[in-house]
């Protein structure tokens, strides 16, 4: 019971056989060897598996690979050259926005979305917008500070 799908993964066109029950994260991790996408709950709550589908953040644990036929999927590995992600990586490191690093790929994808979609967010809005990603190490302070730092820097550069 497999289906053939063709999709773009980190800019690369891929055709693969998938079992319909294989969720996108397992497909990426086990079949495409892209292990940067992490599984923290497999029921859509913790956000560790968050990646981009057609540029929008999505849960890859409750999205099935078969449903991504024709889509463009971007994982944390595909954000190496992304300028917003680069700013965030620098800010996460400067503000100690990560400890064990397990939630971090999902955090970066969600944070990138906040920076792009809510450029005027205050700290409270940052927290609300990021609330779909759980971290057990940092207490979130460093992550909020990192996003704040990127938003502030962008305003300074724009102004």
């Amino acid at each position: 019971m497999t289906k053939t799908i063709t999709l773009t993964i980190n800019g690369r066109r891929v055709t693969a056989q998938v079992s319909p029950r294989t969720h996108l994260a397992d497909f990426l991790r086990e079949q495409q060897l892209l292990t940067g996408t992490h599984l923290g709950c497999e029921h859509g709550v913790c956000g560790a598996c968050t990646l981009l589908i057609d540029g929008q953040p999505a849960r890859s644990c409750i999205t099935y690979a078969v449903a991504c036929d024709g889509r463009a999927v971007t994982t944390v590995e595909g954000l190496d050259a992304d300028p917003t992600a680069a700013e965030l990586r620098d800010a996460f490191s400067a503000e100690h926005g990560l400890q064990c690093g397990f939630c971090t790929p999902g955090m970066l994808v969600a944070a990138r979305d906040v920076v792009l979609r809510k450029p005027d967010a205050d700290d409270r809005q940052i927290r609300v917008e990021m609330s779909g990603n759980l971290c057990r190490c940092t207490g979130y302070v460093g992550i909020v500070n990192a996003i704040r730092r990127v938003l502030d820097a962008r305003k300074t550069n724009a102004g």
Binding site: G47, T50, I53
Partner: peptide, 9 residues
Amino acid sequence: IAYRPVRNR
């Protein structure tokens, strides 16, 4: 509703 990554799908 839930969180943005959930709302996207």
